[in-house]
Design a protein around this nucleic acid. Structure first.
Lengths: 237, 237
DNA sequence: AAAGCCGATTGACCCAGATCAAATTTGACG
DNA sequence: CGTCAAATTTGATCTGGGTCAATCGGCTTT
């Protein structure tokens, strides 16, 4: 959105001390492969609101998210937006069978990605089935999440959607940063609404309601779970 | 649902003249591999309404759908159901990372599957990266469809949902049986409702409305597209 | 061919969440 | 600080689609 500077770091970073080494696609590579892999990717920074790639763009690169949060979304011709997911460090983006991206991806706040040109990456993967296997695992895991989200979108009430979202988001952050009842929400209310298939007003009202009932506290840049059990009960219903 | 007889054919079928040879996972195998592959799968029949596997079941097999249509769904504790997809011949079912199925699968009408025990299949795939690659492609394609469906569930109106469904279903059948304005709908109105995140009444009313407007004709076991352009216009909106 | 059943359709009414419209809070910048 | 502009919250009202309740076929069974 905002015109901000996209930076490409000129120097070579070391995969071996990359923050996502253990959780991203590269977890499947041994040290010697990693050294070769290092030459394929380059770190790129994006500022808040910048678009990393757009739906229908021809796929020229894949991306490994290193730092920050991204929103992945699709737009209808009339502008309605559905966010199909939020990406966190370790997520691998850009795979498709059509040669074109099937969703758009924006940085929410500052983001660092490891960018791979499609062809060299494909060649590298060609004779490294364990990398393919890793990518397949990530795809299958995502598919499972996508199905869970379909249930949420198709069959849950607004209260259940919001409660489920807070718990699932906390769970994802837990895997990265450890457990906490403080749940940072780097995305806007509009983003949350477009993820849950609601309007911004309904999201806001639901937060307020949860706070009035003592289930959460709305804090700067996120929420705090005051009564996790109550939120869980709402989400389960 | 209904207690009907599940049949396992005792004799060996030939993969080489299998109906889905060219479109399923096995499309990635050469003739000699195919002969070996033949010993891994066995054909199993299911009657209308029978459950092939259930969510949370430990995954012991993978399935290659050969004939018929299946509904893939998830249930909420209180019984609300979301159908996450319909499977057609050529679809490969059962992959997951957790060791348990993450959705349930029922036969809609009579179904024939090619069933593979998980471990031998995994071993066979181990040293056949092209099979893994094929499975990965199918997973990524499904992921793309899942994202499209999220947009439908989260952001489309009832009219748009129904119109989009009819066109997408016709498109899938087209790939199997060729083009036609007659669209068979083997699934019930309840199934369609649970797929689109609507109620059965809304689906029924929307069909009737489309028919009154001359866009479709409701026929036994499906619909006929009378004015495909109008349906497309509704779906696009 | 009458009875029973089950899926589908239709009608009447209702409500969760959308829409429209202000406030109010927050943040960025001079 | 003070000033905008943007994001969020809050309130009032509206409505698309849900809920509840009859029918209405089309099969099967006898």
């Amino acid at each position: 959105m905002k015109a901000s500077v996209t930076m490409i770091e000129p120097n070579g970073h070391l995969c071996s001390d990359c923050a996502v080494r253990g959780i991203a696609v590269c977890a499947s590579l041994d040290p010697s492969e990693l050294r070769e892999f290092e030459h394929l990717g380059r770190r790129v920074h994006f500022g808040a609101g910048e678009t990393v790639f757009s739906e229908e763009d021809i796929t020229t690169s894949f991306y490994n998210l290193l730092e920050g949060v991204m929103r992945l979304y699709k737009l209808l011709p009339d502008g309605r937006r559905q966010i199909v997911g939020f990406a966190l460090p370790g997520d691998f983006l850009g795979m498709n069978t059509s040669g074109r991206h099937n969703f758009s991806a924006d940085a929410i706040g500052a983001v660092t990605v490891c960018q791979f040109a499609k062809a060299p990456f494909g060649r590298f993967m060609e004779d490294r089935p364990h990398l393919l296997k890793r990518i397949n695992e990530l795809a299958i895991r995502e598919l499972s999440q996508a199905r869970d989200h379909m249930v949420l979108l198709g069959r849950r009430s607004a209260d259940e959607k919001v409660a489920t979202f807070l718990l699932a988001w906390r769970e994802r952050l837990f895997a990265l940063k450890g457990s906490s009842n403080t749940v940072p929400l780097p995305m806007s209310r509009q983003d949350i609404a477009d993820y849950l298939g609601l309007t911004i007003e309904t999201v806001s009202r639901t937060f307020t309601k949860l706070e009035r009932h003592g289930a959460i506290e709305i804090i700067h840049g996120g929420i705090s779970l005051r009564d996790p059990a109550r939120v869980e009960a709402l989400a389960a219903a």
